[in-house]
Amino acid sequence: MVNFKKNSLAPISALKYLFKKPHTVRYPKEDLNVFYLKGVSPRYRGLHTNDLSKCIGCGSCAKVCPANAIMMVESKDVKPANKFAKTVRPVIDYGRCCFCGQCVDVCPTRSLQMSREYIHSFHPKLSTSSEKEPETVVEDFIWRPDQTHADNPGYVRT
């Protein structure tokens, strides 16, 4: 690094890149395969999954959330695991969630986990009037995690 003069053959050494494999990840066709799983990291903090039978509705995930994104909502289609368990289940507002994983760390029954799924986008329809559009957008990003992505677990509490 001492001399700052570039020797005249340096540009020729750049020709070796012609025969090297490009390190671009052509996303829709091929996926990131750096880890032992294809795609994102095996510990990725993506969209939540929640085992509704194991969850006792204690609400500590809602209390610990720094973005105030989790709401405990009464759910009819779930029966309490034992005498003390409640029937409220966490509902996550992805317009607030910062994907920090603190709710997963504090869940006593390890029912709330994070999957490796992360794709979700929403296009507000042209028909919705401007006044109602913010509400419909917020509406679309609030849902109750259940076992849909449970086959692809990412950030779980060990």
Binding site: Y27, V40, C97, C98, F99, I119, S121, H123
Partner: peptide, 13 residues
């Protein structure tokens, strides 16, 4: 026109 979920969506998203 389009909202993307993620607290900083990944390049793939």
């Amino acid at each position: 026109d389009l909202y993307i979920a993620g607290c900083m969506p990944r390049p793939e998203a």
